[in-house]
């Protein structure tokens, strides 16, 4: 198969960047999208040009490292998978494929298609955990948890932190990412203890970092490789409301 690629090239964070056009031919339909980029890079290296920098690691759809905004969709044309799992048979021979980095104010471009997603770590550091230290823990079966709740919590926990929700959202909002973590813990008795503080701290950090606001477009849900539901956003909204109205402490930072 043959393709025309239009790829965002940007030398470093300070440079201006532009689209470059590349032609690539004889690609097997069984080749994965990232392998196609590997082949392109091999050709660029052979020509003495700098290869296209893109983030990738596990290549089995679980680490959340790969990104890429492909023809207007984060993680490309398929639903419910990451870029590394997209195969070229999903495209038509002769297609033009536009590849862009995630675009959001808190996700600055580092080079080419690589962006800085440290903002997600900062949100988690603001409270996306249960404050237990190692050791001195009661038996794992000491607290039974309703299966339905545990399963829902697992649904939320399956977030891989890739940032597709932010990339897809027309407002560059991180609500689904934040909500998934808030929801995971809000559903578990262990997590309820700090629930009021957690939701306020994480939302405040999300706002501070410059993510947009949620306008319930649900593009995040449509593009999430782990199909995390916007129901979790509603749960976070509820949690936040409860914390603001019912909580004694009003946490702004």
């Amino acid at each position: 198969m043959n393709f025309t690629l239009k790829i965002w090239r940007q030398k470093d964070a300070k440079s201006k960047g532009k689209f470059e056009k590349y032609s690539i031919s004889d690609i097997s339909p069984d080749c994965s999208f990232l392998e196609m980029l590997d082949i392109l890079n091999e050709q660029l290296v052979a020509r003495g040009e700098e290869p296209v920098a893109f983030d990738h690691d596990c290549r089995e759809g679980i680490c959340g490292t790969c990104s890429l905004y492909i023809n207007g969709r984060p993680h490309g044309p398929d639903d419910a998978i990451t870029t590394c799992q997209v195969h070229m048979r999903r495209f038509k021979d002769g297609d033009t494929i536009v590849i862009e980095p995630w675009r959001a104010k808190p996700f600055s471009v580092i080079k080419d298609l690589i962006v800085n997603r440290n903002a997600f770590d900062k949100i988690i550091q603001a409270g996306g955990f249960i404050s237990v230290d190692t050791g001195g823990i009661p038996d794992a079966n000491a607290i039974p948890i309703r299966k339905e709740k545990a399963d829902q919590s697992m649904d939320a926990a399956s977030c891989i932190g890739c940032g597709a929700c932010v990339a897809a959202c027309k407002n560059a909002s991180a609500m689904l990412f934040v909500a998934a973590k808030v929801s995971q813990f809000a559903l578990l008795p262990q997590g309820r203890i700090e629930a009021k503080e957690r939701v306020q701290k994480m939302v405040a950090k999300m706002d501070e970092l410059g993510f947009g606001n949620c306008t319930n477009t649900y593009a995040c849900e449509a593009e999430c490789p782990k199909e995390i539901s916007v129901e979790h956003i509603a749960r976070m909204n509820r949690e936040f409301f409860g914390a603001k109205v019912g909580g004694r402490k009003n946490i702004k930072k």
């Binding site: 104010k105 560059a172 947009g212 606001n213 449509a222």
Partner: peptide, 29 residues
């Protein structure tokens, strides 16, 4: 206020704008 903030959250726009499977009206509120 929300809208201005939202525009500011993506200072550099995409070349190919997103057309994810969502309600079209929600994008033009």
């Amino acid at each position: 206020i929300l809208q201005i903030h939202n525009w500011m959250s993506r200072p550099k726009r995409y070349k190919v704008e997103g057309w994810s499977h969502t309600s079209p009206f929600s994008k033009f509120m």
